[in-house]
Nucleic acid binder design. Structure first.
Lengths: 143, 143
DNA sequence: AGTTGTAGTGGATAGTTGTGGATAAGTATG
DNA sequence: CATACTTATCCACAACTATCCACTACAACT
């Protein structure tokens, strides 16, 4: 179902345990990639397939499209869950999101986000305090 | 699956190790050819078939199309993976892409691109900073 | 409380991967 | 034909990764 917030750790070998509640959704494989606000995103294979198809369909003759696909696809990595439900975070992704030992996993329905715990707390504080304002703005967009 | 970014080296005998995650997709043979932005592209035999078909189908009346097809088709070379999963980069392709020792391999779903590492870093920086703009423009194209 | 089970963390070992070099086989050139 | 030169096959090493097992903490249930 992919909801909830979990505190986990990345060990010295860059392994991260996926919350057990998320495992049946992911199966044995998943795709991890860069997200906005320098967090990481984990997709199910199915969900990633949809994203990849869109990127493959981009016109190869346009430089913009080529570059966009390059960044999006090369930034991703397919990972396997080991017997205990852990994944290996590639070095370049760990660096991108500036992950230290403590990370927070967020279940967001069709994807999972990984944040450095400190950064998430900070971000959450800022966001929650302005959640009313944001709701106002979203209403204007018809949500 | 062909996604992700890998740092490898070309040795003094122009051998390049294919990332092990890519090997099962390629099998024992692959096609390597020129790409845009002076990188190289590796296709599976199957995928190359599709690309070649597209190129052959280009309107023969247009000089641009003809030239593009010429460059792509004549530049191609089929390579075999040795027992350790390495391919031999032909000299003219190595020169075309100005490859030195350190190269970066990009998994782009249906193909693999090979860049000189320095050039890719530079290119990526420029692209990433404008990825938001690109996304906006692509949205206008209905993606 | 005691027991059982599960989840998260940490570490040891065996296997794989990437790289470099050595030797053998093929190709051209004088 | 001999020589230099390139290309293929094979092996060796170091670094990394996967797999396996152990330990602790917590929860649920009896």
């Amino acid at each position: 179902m992919l909801i909830g917030e979990y505190q986990h750790t990345i060990d010295t070998k860059r392994r991260l345990a996926i919350p057990s509640k998320f495992r049946k959704d992911l199966g044995e494989q998943a795709v991890i990639t860069k997200g906005l606000e320098s967090c990481l995103v984990i997709y199910t294979l199915e969900e990633w397939g949809k994203q990849a198809q869109k990127l493959e369909a981009l016109p190869n003759s346009q430089a913009d499209a080529r570059n966009y696909a390059r960044v999006m696809l090369s930034g991703a990595s397919d990972v396997e869950l080991d017997k205990l439900g852990r994944v290996l975070i590639p070095d370049y992704l760990k660096n991108y999101a500036v992950l230290k030992k403590n990370v927070t996993l967020l279940g967001l329905s069709n994807k999972i986000e990984i944040w450095d715990s400190e950064k998430w707390e900070e971000h959450k504080k800022r966001t929650e305090s302005s959640v009313g304002d944001i709701a106002e703005r979203l209403k204007e967009l018809g949500i």
